[in-house]
Design a protein around this nucleic acid. Structure first.
Length: 682
DNA sequence: GCCCAATCAGGCTA
DNA sequence: CTAGCCTGATTGGG
C-alpha cells in the first residue's frame, strides 16, 4: 500500500501555494481520463487520440517490401571493412575537403583507458609491476604507429558512408525520419553501433586524428543525425513505432536517435500541444536512472522525482519549480495521459555504465511535494504501469533472484548442464512440455581437431606482457588485425574483418589479454530452454551488448567431403562454414571465404552453440577466428550478437544455404516467425 | 533565427 | 570504489 516516509497520504497539494509556479492554465481534461471506461484493448486510455497522438500501431505504406526484407537481414548488409591501404594512401589521392590538418580542432587529447566503457580489467595480475594498472601517458603514446592523419580522416568518412549505404540510410525520406517502424529502428540502431565501435577503434589506435573523440557515443550519434539517419523524430505520446516493451539501450543517444527519449541528459521529455487558446506541455517519457532518489513499491510502480532543485556546493538551496518537465508531468497527471518509462540500471560487467530498459507505458496517479536531501522541495510523481503489457523490468528483477538462488524458477531440469565445464553454469529449463532434456551428448567447450588441420599462417607470438595495446604498431597481433585490436575490453568486436586473429599459445600476453576473447569462455549466463515448436533453444539471462562475444562452436572437426553421407539425424548438430552465409557474401563479395572448408559436428560432443536455432531475422552472427597453438594455427568459429539483446530473448543465427544441390534438397520448414521469414532453412 | 540555459551523461582523475 | 570535474549535445524558451 503506502510506501511510508516519502509518501504524502493527504494527496496532491496546491503547489502554487508552496512554490514559485506558473499557474496551471486549464485543468479541464483534454481527454476524458478513461480510467474506468469500458474500452477494450491492452492499453486502455492509450493513445490519447486526437491531434497529437501519432503513436500506436501503424501501417507503413511507404516501406518498400523487398527493401525492408533485404535490409533487416543484418548479415547481407555488413559493409566491407576499410581496406588496409586506405591508411597508407597519400593525401593527394583524395580530394576530400575535410582532409587536412588545417581542419583539426586543436584540443589536446587526454590519456584514456583501453576502451570506451570505463576501467578495464586489463593490467591486473601483471608480471611487470612497473606497468601499473594501465599503460598510459607518454610512453604509451610514443608506441603508437605514425598516423597519416588525413587518410585516417578519409577512412572515418568512408566507413560512415559505407555503413549508410549498406543500410540504406543515405537519403531517408522526411516521413521516414518523422515516423519509424521496427525495421527502420533496427537499421538506425545497428548503423549507429557499428559506426560507434569502429570510431572508437580508430580513435584509440591513433592519436590526434581529425574528428577523433573520447566520446564515440556522442560523435557517432551527431554525425548520423546530421546526415538525417534517424527516425521517429516527431514526438508522440504513447508507444514509439518500432520500439517494443523490454527493448534495451546502452546509451542515451540511442534513445534520442529512434525517438524514444529526445533529451541527451534530462530525465523528462515533453512536447507542447496546441490547444485552442494555449499551448500546454505534456510529458512523453521519463528516464529513471538513479540521479534522484526514485523508488517504487514494486516493479510496476515508480516514484519519480521532478527535475531541478539542487543543493549547490556553496550551500545555496534551490527548490524545484513547477515548470518545464515538472509542469508537463503535472499536466499529464491531470489529463490521465500515458508516459513512457525507461528504467536505468547499472551495467554490472561495465561498472560505470548503465543499461536503459524500456518498461512500457505508465500513468501518473498522483503527485506531491517532498523534502529532498539538503532540504529543498522536490516534486514526486507516482507512476503506475498500465496493465497488460509484456514483462520488462520485473523480468530483470526475477533474474536477479534466480541468480541469487532465492527465486523459484519453474521448469529447471539441470542447474548446470555443462557440469562445470564452462566458466558459468548453463541451466536446462523446460516449462513447456514433458521433455526431460536433449538426447545424450558429451559437453565440451573446445573444438577438437583429429587430423592436424593447420593453416600455413606463420605465427609469431607477441611479447605484450601487459596485454596487447591498441595502436601498438610493434605488436604482431595488432598488425595481423590490420593495425587494430579487434575487441574492446568487454569482449565486443569493434569492426568486421573476414578473419579475427586472436593471440595464441606463443604469445606472451596474459590470459586476460583483450585479444583472447573467444578462448576465455562464456561471459553471459546462458540457458538451454524448451521452445514452443522448435525443440531446444538458447537464450541469455544477462543483457548482451551489440557485437559482444557469446560463445564459440565446439565439437569435432569432420571431413567436409563426408558431410554428404551423413544421415539427416546427424545434420541437426552440424556447423558448416562452407555454406553461403549472407554476411560473408557481403563482406567479401564472394572472394574471401573461410580459409578452409571447416565443418563441425556437435552430435556427440559439443557446447551451448549446438542449441542455437536458425532464424531468418537473426540476432547473432558468426565470424571465423584464428588462434595459434604452438607452431600451428587453428580456425575457430565465434558467435557474436548483432544488436543489443534483452534478457531471455532466444538467440538465433542464419544457417546459410548449402552450396551442393543434394544437401539443398533437404530443406526444412522454418518456424522463426519473423516478418521476413523465407519459410524454410537448411 | 540566434543564443543560451537546463539537464537523472559518460569519461577521466584524485 | 566513489565523488567530483569536465566536456558535451539536444531542445525549449527568451
Amino acid at each position: 500500500m503506502d510506501r511510508g516516509s516519502n509518501y504524502n497520504p493527504t494527496g496532491p497539494i496546491d503547489k502554487s501555494r508552496v512554490l514559485d509556479v506558473k499557474p496551471l492554465r486549464s485543468l479541464k481534461p483534454i481527454f476524458s481520463p478513461q480510467m474506468g471506461s469500458s474500452q477494450t484493448g491492452p492499453f486502455p486510455g492509450v493513445p490519447p487520440t486526437g491531434p497529437f497522438a501519432p503513436g500506436g500501431p501503424s501501417f507503413f505504406p511507404f516501406a518498400s517490401g523487398n527493401e525492408s526484407q533485404r535490409a533487416s537481414g543484418f548479415a547481407n548488409v555488413i559493409p566491407s571493412p576499410v581496406p588496409l591501404n586506405s591508411f597508407r594512401t597519400p593525401d593527394t589521392q583524395y580530394s576530400n575537403g575535410n582532409a587536412g590538418p588545417s581542419k583539426t580542432r586543436g584540443r589536446p587529447r587526454k590519456g584514456r583507458t583501453e576502451d570506451d566503457y570505463g576501467a578495464s580489467d586489463l593490467g591486473e595480475n601483471l608480471d611487470d609491476p612497473s606497468s601499473g594498472r594501465k599503460q598510459r601517458g607518454s610512453s604509451h603514446k610514443r608506441a603508437k604507429g605514425p598516423a597519416n592523419l588525413s587518410s585516417v580522416q578519409v577512412s572515418i568518412d568512408d566507413t560512415l558512408d559505407q555503413f549508410l549505404r549498406a543500410f540504406k540510410l543515405t537519403a531517408l525520406e522526411s516521413h521516414q525520419q518523422a515516423d519509424g517502424n521496427k525495421e527502420l529502428v533496427a537499421r538506425v540502431l545497428l548503423t549507429y553501433n557499428l559506426f560507434r565501435r569502429r570510431l572508437f577503434q580508430i580513435c584509440e589506435a591513433k592519436e590526434d586524428i581529425p574528428g577523433g573523440t573520447n566520446r564515440p557515443d556522442l560523435k557517432a550519434a551527431t554525425t548520423l543525425m546530421n546526415k538525417g539517419a534517424r527516425t521517429n523524430s516527431t514526438k508522440r505520446v504513447g508507444p514509439v513505432p518500432g520500439v517494443e516493451v523490454g527493448d534495451i539501450f546502452f546509451f542515451r543517444m540511442e534513445m534520442c536517435m529512434v525517438g524514444m527519449h529526445a533529451p541527451t541528459m534530462a530525465g523528462i521529455d515533453y512536447m507542447t500541444v496546441k490547444l485552442s487558446a494555449d499551448d500546454e506541455p505534456v510529458a512523453v517519457s521519463v528516464v529513471s536512472s538513479g540521479g534522484y532518489e526514485d523508488d517504487g513499491e514494486d516493479g510496476d510502480v515508480l516514484i519519480y522525482s521532478g527535475q531541478g532543485g539542487v543543493q549547490r556546493k556553496d550551500g545555496q538551496i534551490f527548490d524545484q519549480k513547477l515548470e518545464r518537465g515538472n509542469l508537463a508531468l503535472e499536466k499529464s497527471l491531470h489529463r490521465a495521459n500515458v508516459v513512457r518509462v525507461i528504467r536505468g540500471v547499472k551495467d554490472v560487467p561495465n561498472g560505470t555504465g548503465k543499461i536503459y530498459i524500456y518498461d512500457g507505458l505508465y500513468k501518473i496517479h498522483e503527485s506531491w511535494v517532498d523534502k529532498g536531501k539538503g532540504g529543498c522541495s522536490v516534486f514526486k510523481y507516482k507512476f503506475v504501469r498500465v496493465p497488460g503489457q509484456p514483462e520488462a523490468f520485473t523480468l530483470w528483477k526475477s533474474i536477479e533472484h534466480w541468480k541469487a538462488g532465492s527465486g523459484t524458477r519453474i521448469g529447471v531440469i539441470l542447474p548446470d548442464l555443462t557440469s562445470g565445464e564452462e566458466t558459468l553454469p548453463v541451466s536446462l529449463v523446460n516449462d513447456i512440455d514433458d521433455e526431460k532434456g536433449p538426447a545424450y551428448f558429451t559437453y565440451s567447450s573446445t573444438l577438437k581437431y583429429d587430423k592436424p588441420f593447420d593453416l600455413p599462417v606463420p605465427s609469431s607470438g607477441c611479447a605484450c606482457h601487459g596485454g596487447c595495446q591498441a595502436g601498438d604498431a610493434n605488436c604482431p597481433c595488432v598488425q595481423r588485425n590490420e593495425g587494430f585490436l579487434p575487441y574492446n575490453s568487454l569482449g565486443v568486436v569493434l569492426n568486421y574483418n573476414s578473419l579475427i586473429h586472436e593471440c595464441g599459445s606463443s604469445c606472451l600476453c596474459p590470459p586476460n589479454c583483450r585479444n583472447r576473447v573467444s578462448q576465455a569462455g562464456l561471459k553471459v549466463r546462458l540457458e538451454v530452454f524448451r521452445t514452443k515448436d522448435k525443440g531446444w533453444g538458447l537464450r541469455s539471462w544477462d543483457p548482451i551488448r551489440s557485437g559482444m562475444f557469446i560463445c564459440q562452436y565446439a565439437g569435432d572437426v569432420i571431413d567436409a567431403s563426408s558431410i554428404m553421407d551423413l544421415g539427416s539425424e546427424h545434420e541437426e548438430y552440424i556447423f558448416d562454414a562452407t555454406r553461403a552465409y549472407p554476411s560473408l557474401d557481403y563482406t567479401s563479395n564472394g572472394s574471401a571465404e573461410v580459409p578452409f572448408p571447416l565443418v563441425i559436428s556437435a552430435k556427440n560432443t559439443g557446447n551451448v552453440a549446438r542449441f542455437i536455432n536458425h532464424s531468418c531475422s537473426p540476432n547473432v552472427f558468426w565470424q571465423p577466428v584464428l588462434r595459434d597453438s604452438g607452431d600451428k594455427t587453428y580456425l575457430h568459429v565465434g558467435f557474436y550478437s548483432i544488436g543489443h539483446i534483452p534478457p531471455m530473448q532466444e538467440l538465433a543465427f542464419d544457417y546459410g544455404i548449402p552450396k551442393s544441390d543434394r544437401a539443398a534438397l533437404r530443406r526444412k520448414r522454418c518456424l522463426c516467425g519473423s516478418l521476413n521469414c523465407k519459410g524454410y532453412f537448411y
